[in-house]
Design a protein around this nucleic acid. Structure first.
Length: 497
RNA sequence: GGUCUUGUAGCCGAGUGGCUAGGCAAAGCUCUGCAAAAGCUUCUACACCGGUUCGAAUCCGGUCGAGACCUCCA
């Protein structure tokens, strides 16, 4: 079906993508914890997986895309210390925990829609799958990989490691992990410091708690992903994705829970997207420098000079590889804005190319061959671990051809019908369908175009009278409003936003 | 300390054992009433030191620098 290669974090190498049940593909991505606003780093990760999902579909696969919502109010660490994030936010905002969940889930969806990402096909919540999680714990206890102490249940990592390899994904060594934990370890109820919670007993003041065979409590953070990926995608599925920061411990624990309960690690391919920095500095919730997506759009954050369109931001993301760290800054945003405009302008131009002089396919010129080669290269690049950066480079080269065609540097009779339609299809497929980019402000242009034509005509009359003061005034003032007039070689006037 | 990633032209950012990605910026030219846009041209880099090789920025070793994870985060 395709010759896609994917870098698999589990094996640390690029592997040919062979779905377990082609043409069906199961993909699970760790979603957000909805206790406050999603930040721009989250957007990068989910945009990356959106592109991956879109490309898989474009390649002919039928994708079941599962992305969870974490709404169960976990503690800030695995050792039972820290605070319940959902609850503390609820107290802060004087809302019910589930109002917090609702508020930030809705906000998250709005942001993802602004960035034109497709919704997952299943978006399960942790609190909606407590029964599955409890079942999973019971299975782990039955398999002797988990034990109960005082109403809490822990995963026995040492026991597990006798049969499996805890650390296979993240490259950790269990002894070193134990050594690292030792001094932090108090008088705990866990058997070993590296054991992690599957179920935590809730103290009476906890608002978010549920009944279980071990008393009132709440599930461990890692548990929901194992339970829900198994439920919707099976014990063995194709792709598991998430941010790099989840590799350890979260994904490592997921694998352990999967193996411990049903003997399969879960996903065949593990994909990790890398982190986003702002101006060279790590961006994270804990550092408090995480700029919110809406702040980027409005420019309301003090570190920004103005707002930037979600598509420009998304284009910036796509210009680097999903697995590379990326720095976002004002210069980069401005560059991305210009680059995206260049591609979108070329796409628009393609729909207006006069086809009259174009030859039927009899012989192929060197330009035809170049177009075909570049268009094919787009797919080759995407098949190489979703190399969007290289694909975009091809589109830029194709843009130059399109622009040359417009300027007359390339004559339309040098092209065949085939390559012109291939060109148009390639821009449409990659820009719109796979990258999920939207032309800037394309709606309502019908009326706007009528209005602008009036101004363009007045300006034309002024120019005929050599009244350049008036003609420049019209052009300059429109530019101030963000509308650019371009006098084309053939005497017509075009405009863009 | 452990695990891992990384160091590419003014900036951003791909990539490969030999065939100089691309974008932005800058300069020149063409076009234009002037612009803008666009086209053409120029700027040809891979931290440092060794090694392997006919040939390395690309592989190996070392040095130095940067970063991530090991604690909540995508």
């Amino acid at each position: 079906m395709s010759s896609l290669y994917i870098y698999n974090s589990l094996t640390r190498q690029k592997e040919k993508f062979e779905p377990i049940h082609a043409p069906h593909v199961g993909m699970y991505v760790c979603g957000p914890t909805v206790y406050n606003d999603a930040h721009i780093g989250n957007v990068r990760t989910f945009s990356s997986f959106d592109m991956i999902c879109r490309y898989l579909r474009y390649s002919g696969y039928i994708v079941r895309y599962v992305r969870n919502i974490t709404d169960a109010g976990h503690l800030t660490n695995d050792r039972g210390e820290g605070v319940n994030r959902m609850e503390s936010q609820a107290k802060l905002e004087r809302l019910e925990p589930m109002e917090i969940v609702q508020k930030y889930t809705v906000g998250f969806h709005q942001v993802m829609a602004l960035f034109n990402t497709l919704p997952p096909t299943i978006e399960p919540t942790a609190t909606g799958h407590l029964i599955e999680q409890i079942d999973l714990i019971e299975q782990l206890i039955k398999n002797d990989f988990a034990y109960e102490v005082n109403g809490s249940v822990y995963f026995n990592v040492k026991k597990y490691n006798e049969q499996y390899h805890y650390g296979m994904l993240s490259g950790r060594n269990i002894d070193e992990l134990i050594a690292g934990y030792r001094d932090l370890d108090g008088q705990e109820e866990k058997k070993h410091s590296i054991d992690f919670a599957l179920w935590k007993k809730a103290s009476p003041e906890h608002i978010m708690q549920w009944r279980s065979p071990w008393g009132m409590g709440f599930p461990g953070w890692h548990l929901e992903c194992s339970a829900m990926s198994t439920k919707y995608l099976g014990q063995e599925f194709d792709i598991h994705g998430g941010g790099m920061d989840l590799k350890f411990p979260h994904h490592e624990c997921e694998i352990a829970q999967n193996n411990g309960s049903h003997g399969h690690g879960g996903a065949k391919y593990w994909l990790h997207t890398n982190m986003l920095n702002f101006d060279g500095q790590k961006m994270s919730k804990s550092l408090g420098n995480a700029i919110l997506p809406l702040e980027f759009l409005s420019g309301s954050h003090p570190l920004l000079d103005r707002g930037y369109s979600p598509m420009a931001i998304k284009f910036l993301f796509l210009q680097s590889h999903y697995s590379s760290e990326l720095d976002i800054n004002i210069k980069g945003l401005q560059d991305a804005e210009k680059g995206l405009k260049r591609l979108m302008d070329a796409r628009k131009l393609l729909s207006n190319i006069p086809l009259a002089n174009i030859k039927p396919l009899t012989e192929q010129t060197s330009i035809d061959l170049k177009i075909v080669a570049l268009c094919e290269e787009c797919k080759t690049n995407m098949d190489d671990d979703f190399n969007t950066a290289k694909t975009i480079a091809c589109l830029f080269e194709l843009s130059t051809i399109v622009n040359s065609l417009k300027d007359g540097n390339i004559q339309s009779n040098q092209l065949s019908v085939h390559s012109v339609s291939l060109l148009a299809k390639t821009f449409e497929d990659y820009l719109i369908e796979i990258f999920g980019l939207k032309p800037i402000e394309e709606n309502n242009h019908g009326k706007l175009d009528d209005v602008l034509q009036v101004l363009i005509n007045i300006r034309k009359e002024a120019k005929i009278k050599k009244d350049f003061a008036t003609s420049d005034k019209i052009r300059n003032e429109l530019l101030e409003k963000g509308v650019q007039l371009k006098d084309e070689k053939d005497g017509t006037v075009s405009w863009s936003i």
